[in-house]
Design a protein around this nucleic acid. Structure first.
Length: 581
RNA sequence: CGGGACGUGGCUCAGCCCGGUAGAGCGCUUGGUUUGGGACCAAGAUGUCGCAGGUUCAAAUCCUGUCGUCCCGACCA
C-alpha cells in the first residue's frame, strides 16, 4: 500500500477533547474519528489494527475448541423478559420500536439468544460440551461514555458461551477459556493478569477479569505480590482481624452529642470515640425497600458487595433531601448522623452487618434521636442483625487473607471477563438435555467476553512514547514503513522502495510506502506517530554508500547494505513475531 | 442523574471581565526558494462566534433557555 492511496489523517496537535494518551493517539495517528460521544468511525489504520486483534482472538478461540457463529444484533425483548434481565439491565439496554410498535433490543450481550438456540437444538448429553463464540458489535447505553474506545456506546466484543452437562465439565470449559485469554493478551503484547471478580448483572458464582495495569483504568485491583492473590476491589477481601472485644457494659447508655453528625466529629474532643469503636449506620433503598447497613466507623461500605450479597437489581443510598426517602428517616426517628440500629428499627427492615463487627462490644452508634448517641453497644446483645456479610472495602496495606503480607492496590483496564454461569439462563429459557438415565436436566453454562476495541486501545495505552504509538508487530496496521526521501517514479530511492516492497510483501510482510512528496522531517514524524514497528529509510546519503537505514520504532537506527535490507527486515519481523507467539 | 469546565475558520487557541469594523499559529490554495527530523518568503481562500430568545442605538462579549463536548461523581451519616 502507498501512503497517498490510503487515508492517514495525522494531527500535529492534540485534540482538545481527548484526555488520556491512548485516546489522543487514536486521533492523532489517524486511527479513528469521533462521530459523536461514544461513537467512532474506524479509519484504515485503526481498522487494520482492530482486525489484527480480532484475528488473534479468533485463532485462540478456534484453538480452544470454540465454534464461531454470528447472532442477530436486533433481539426480541421477550427473551430478555424471560431471563429476568429486562429489568436488571435497566437503561443500559438500547430499545428500539418497529412500525408495529413492537419493542426490540440492540444486542448488549447474547446469553438469551444463544441459550434459546441451545434450547431448540440440543437434546442429548452426547452433544456436549459445546462452546459458541462470535465477534460482533455490541450496544450499551453507557451512563458516561469516555476515553474514546475505552467506554463507548457501540464497540466490538468477542463473546463466547459454553454448554456442559455437569459442573465439572463447566469448570473445564471455563479453564480452557481462561487459558485462551491468557494467550490472547500475551499475543497482543499486553501484560495482562487475571483477578477474582464480582459477577454483577451477568450472574453466576465464579468469575475472573483480565486486567491491564494502567493508571487511566477504571478499576481498582487489590493484589498481593507474595502469593499472587488478586481481586477486583468490588470483590477483594483481606485477613484483617475482627473488632477486638472489650468488657461489655451493663446496657447501652445514651449521651448527648449536639451537632455531631460525622464519624470524625465523634472521634474528637470531648467525645474521643475512635472510629474503630463506632458503628456506621447507612440507610439504603434496595429494590424499593429500606435496608440498614452497618459497617465499622473506620470502614467503607463496598456497594458492589452490597449489591451482590443482597441480589438487589437496584440500590442507592437513601437521601434525606428526597421526600420519598424522608419517611424512612422519620421511621427511625433521626436524620443521617444520628442513626443506629439499636432502637426504633421497624420490624420488616433487614439489618445487614459487616463481618468485621461480629461479636463487637463496647461500640458507639447513633441513638436514632437527633443529637444523641449510644455507647456500650454490643452487636450480639443489642442489635437484631438479619444477615452478616463481608461488606467493607479493602484498603491498601491490609494483610493478605492467604499469606498475611501487605496488600497493594493499583488501577487497571478490564479487557476480558470469564464467568461460570451455572443454570442461571438455562433454567428460565428451558435449555435442557436428557442424561444417560433419561432424566431431563438444565445445561450448565459459562460465558466469556473480550472487549476487542478496548483491547486495541489498551495496546496503545501500554505502548507509546512522546513520539507516538509503539505497536507490537502482532497488532500493527503494517509491519514495515518504507520511507523514500525522493518520490519521483524514476528516482533511485523510489525504485529501491518498490523493489523492497515486492520482496517484503512476497515474504508475507505488510508494507506501506510513504510516497508523499513531503520533507523528510514530516515523514519521519508521521511514521513514528502512527507507530510502524520498523522503518526503512531511503535517502541520497545512504544510497550513495550502497546502504539503507533501518529504524525499529523502539530501537536504534542502523545502516545495512542495500542488498541485505530485505532479509534483515524479514528476519527482524519474524523474530518479533516469535516473541509474541 | 448531580457537580464543574468548555463550545470562535479543518485543528490548537486568543478576544468576552470592561458591548462598538472577528484575530493568531498550524493546516489548505497559488507562485517562488528549499529538500535527512514537523522549512522559508509572498499572495490568497476559509467564520450563521453551537442554536434560539431577550436586553441594547449596537451582542462573540451581558441575561435566559436549549443542544453538544470533556472532566469528576453516582456513595458513607
Amino acid at each position: 500500500m502507498r501512503w497517498t492511496q490510503t487515508f492517514i489523517p495525522t494531527l500535529k496537535e492534540t485534540p482538545a477533547d481527548a484526555e488520556i494518551v491512548s485516546h489522543q493517539l487514536l486521533l492523532r495517528a489517524g486511527l479513528v474519528r469521533k462521530l459523536t460521544g461514544g461513537l467512532y468511525t474506524f479509519l484504515p489504520m485503526g481498522l487494520r489494527a482492530l482486525t489484527k486483534v480480532a484475528a488473534i482472538v479468533r485463532e485462540e478461540m478456534d484453538r480452544a475448541g470454540a465454534i464461531e457463529v454470528s447472532m442477530p444484533l436486533l433481539q426480541p425483548t421477550d427473551i430478555w423478559h424471560a431471563s429476568g434481565r429486562y429489568e436488571a439491565m435497566r437503561d443500559n439496554l438500547y430499545k428500539v420500536k418497529d412500525r408495529a410498535q413492537k419493542e426490540w433490543a440492540l444486542c448488549p450481550t447474547a446469553e438469551e439468544v444463544i441459550t434459546t438456540l441451545a434450547a431448540n437444538e440440543f437434546s442429548s448429553y452426547k452433544q456436549f460440551p459445546k462452546n459458541f463464540y462470535q465477534v460482533g458489535t455490541k450496544f450499551r447505553d453507557e451512563i458516561r461514555p469516555r476515553f474514546g474506545l475505552m467506554r463507548a456506546k457501540e464497540f466490538l466484543m468477542k463473546d463466547a458461551y459454553s454448554f456442559d452437562t455437569t459442573d465439572a465439565g463447566a469448570m473445564a470449559s471455563y479453564q480452557k477459556m481462561y487459558d485462551a485469554y491468557t494467550r490472547i493478551f500475551a499475543r497482543c503484547g499486553l501484560r495482562a493478569f487475571a483477578v477474582e471478580a464480582d459477577t454483577g448483572i451477568i450472574g453466576g458464582n465464579h468469575s475472573h477479569e483480565f486486567m491491564i495495569p494502567a493508571e487511566t483504568g477504571e478499576n481498582d485491583v487489590v493484589y498481593c505480590e507474595a502469593c499472587n492473590y488478586a481481586a477486583n476491589i468490588e470483590k477483594a477481601t483481606s485477613g484483617l482481624p475482627k473488632t477486638a472485644p472489650r468488657d461489655p457494659g451493663p446496657a447501652p447508655e445514651k449521651f448527648a452529642t449536639p451537632g455531631v453528625v460525622t464519624i470524625e466529629a465523634l472521634a474528637k474532643d470531648p467525645y474521643k470515640v475512635p472510629a474503630n469503636r463506632q458503628i456506621k449506620t447507612l440507610v439504603f433503598i434496595a429494590d424499593s425497600k429500606p435496608v440498614l447497613v452497618l459497617v465499622r466507623g473506620d470502614d467503607q461500605l463496598n456497594e458492589a458487595k452490597f449489591m451482590a450479597k443482597t441480589g438487589a437489581i437496584e440500590a442507592r443510598p437513601a437521601d434525606a433531601k428526597n421526600p420519598a426517602d424522608l419517611v424512612h428517616f422519620t421511621a427511625l426517628g433521626a436524620m443521617p448522623g444520628s442513626l443506629g440500629a439499636v432502637r426504633n428499627v421497624p420490624a420488616g427492615w433487614k439489618v445487614l452487618a459487616d463481618e468485621r463487627l461480629r461479636g463487637a462490644n463496647g461500640m458507639t452508634t447513633g441513638a436514632n434521636e437527633d443529637g444523641f448517641h449510644l455507647r456500650d453497644v454490643s452487636m450480639d446483645r443489642d442489635i437484631r442483625v438479619t444477615e452478616w456479610h463481608d461488606l467493607r472495602t479493602v484498603t491498601v496495606g491490609e494483610p493478605c487473607a492467604k499469606c498475611a503480607k501487605p496488600l497493594k492496590i493499583r488501577r487497571a483496564i478490564e479487557v476480558g471477563h470469564v464467568f461460570k454461569l451455572g443454570t442461571k439462563y438455562s433454567v428460565p429459557l428451558n435449555a435442557t438435555f436428557l442424561d444417560e438415565a433419561g432424566q431431563r436436566a438444565p445445561l450448565v453454562m459459562g460465558c466469556y467476553g473480550i472487549g476487542v476495541t478496548r483491547t486495541l486501545q489498551a495496546v496503545i495505552e501500554q505502548g507509546n512514547d512522546k513520539d507516538g504509538i509503539i505497536w507490537p508487530v502482532s497488532v500493527a496496521p503494517y509491519h514495515v514503513c518504507i520511507t523514500p526521501l525522493a518520490v519521483a517514479a524514476e528516482s533511485p530511492a523510489m525504485k529501491l522502495a518498490e523493489q523492497l516492497y515486492a520482496e517484503l510483501t512476497a515474504a508475507g510482510l505488510e508494507v506501506l510506502i510513504d510516497d508523499r512528496d513531503e520533507r523528510p522531517g514530516v515523514k519521519f514524524k508521521d511514521s513514528e506517530l502512527v507507530g510502524f514497528p520498523i522503518r526503512i529509510g531511503l535517502g541520497e546519503k545512504s544510497l550513495a554508500k550502497g546502504e539503507v537505514e533501518i529504524k525499529p520504532r523502539s530501537g536504534a537506527l542502523r545502516s545495512v547494505k542495500t542488498e541485505d535490507a530485505a532479509a534483515d527486515v524479514i528476519a527482524w519481523v519474524k523474530a518479533e513475531k516469535a516473541k509474541l507467539a
